[in-house]
Computed example of a mutant assay.
Amino acid sequence: MTTFQIVVLALIQGLTEFLPISSSAHLILPSILLDWPDQGLAFDLVLNIGTLGAVLIYFRRDIGRMCGAWCYSLKTKQQTPDSKLTWWILYATLPAAVIGFLGKDLVEMYLRSGYVIAVTTLVFGLLLGWADFRAKRIKTEHQTGFKGAMIIGFAQVLALIPGTSRSGITITAALMLGLTREAAARFSFLMSVPIIAMASGYDLLKFILSEQSVDWQGLLIGAGVSFISAILCIHVFLIILNKMGMLPFVIYRVLLAALLFYVLS
């Protein structure tokens, strides 16, 4: 890939990973419209590391406090709101981790098509709008509960289908459970830490076992661009969320789905 392609793809990944608009729906466009080559395993890995670093830095205080409370709960057997939240997020990660590990190859083989991405972009975008419109929006992330966390966790499994959007489907489920918009987004962002970490570990293992040549300069550029753009994306998303809700993202998903159907027809 050229440096320009690396920067564009890293920007797409960083800007769409945490927005409820589906990164896979955007990453497919350059290959369809511009006939760009597949970025490869190593590039996917560094993009994931970049976005993981972004959420760790942005929520460093929350994550540090939660990790401290979780470790304290292991030692004393006493639970605090932060330790409970940490446990809920860890449990909620298990469904996607297990099903993703077992079904990743099947998804890659049968569901990674342009039409599937177009349909899921549209359907789950409308579902997000419905959830936002009907939501009670009264709970914080600390009021999710174990049952609620597992519902969000199983919803995250649907994100294995390209075009669904991991953040989109988890925020949708959280809104349906009565969380506020900000709490739903925060829970989704915090959930991204273990799932992206596991996906990165899996890709790292595959990369070590492969014999791919490595463009280290390109990888560093990709990681840096995805890291910076993801931090900016999280910050701007939370601002938009408090002012306008999910409507801008729902409209965007509908228009993006229409574009995908048009270019694929």
Results as ranks from 00 to 15, higher is better:
7 V>N: 05
10 A>E: 08
11 L>N: 06
11 L>G: 06
11 L>M: 12
13 Q>V: 09
22 S>Y: 04
24 S>I: 01
29 L>Q: 06
30 P>W: 07
35 D>K: 14
50 G>S: 10
51 T>A: 09
51 T>G: 06
53 G>A: 12
57 I>Y: 14
57 I>D: 03
59 F>N: 08
63 I>A: 03
64 G>D: 03
64 G>I: 04
66 M>T: 03
66 M>Y: 07
71 C>R: 14
71 C>Q: 10
81 P>K: 14
83 S>K: 05
83 S>N: 09
88 W>C: 02
91 Y>F: 15
91 Y>E: 03
93 T>E: 00
96 A>D: 08
97 A>S: 09
97 A>G: 02
102 L>F: 15
103 G>L: 15
112 R>F: 08
112 R>Y: 03
114 G>T: 08
121 T>P: 03
123 V>G: 05
123 V>P: 04
127 L>T: 01
130 W>Q: 07
132 D>Q: 11
133 F>M: 12
150 M>Y: 10
151 I>A: 11
152 I>Y: 04
154 F>Y: 14
156 Q>H: 11
158 L>M: 13
162 P>L: 08
167 S>E: 11
177 L>T: 01
180 T>Y: 10
180 T>M: 03
181 R>E: 08
181 R>Y: 10
181 R>T: 10
182 E>M: 14
189 F>T: 12
196 I>R: 02
197 A>K: 00
199 A>L: 00
204 L>A: 15
207 F>V: 02
207 F>K: 01
211 E>S: 14
216 W>F: 15
224 G>R: 05
226 S>C: 12
227 F>Y: 14
228 I>S: 08
230 A>E: 02
236 V>G: 00
237 F>A: 00
241 L>W: 00
247 L>Q: 13
247 L>W: 11
247 L>N: 12
247 L>P: 03
248 P>A: 02
252 Y>D: 07
261 F>A: 10
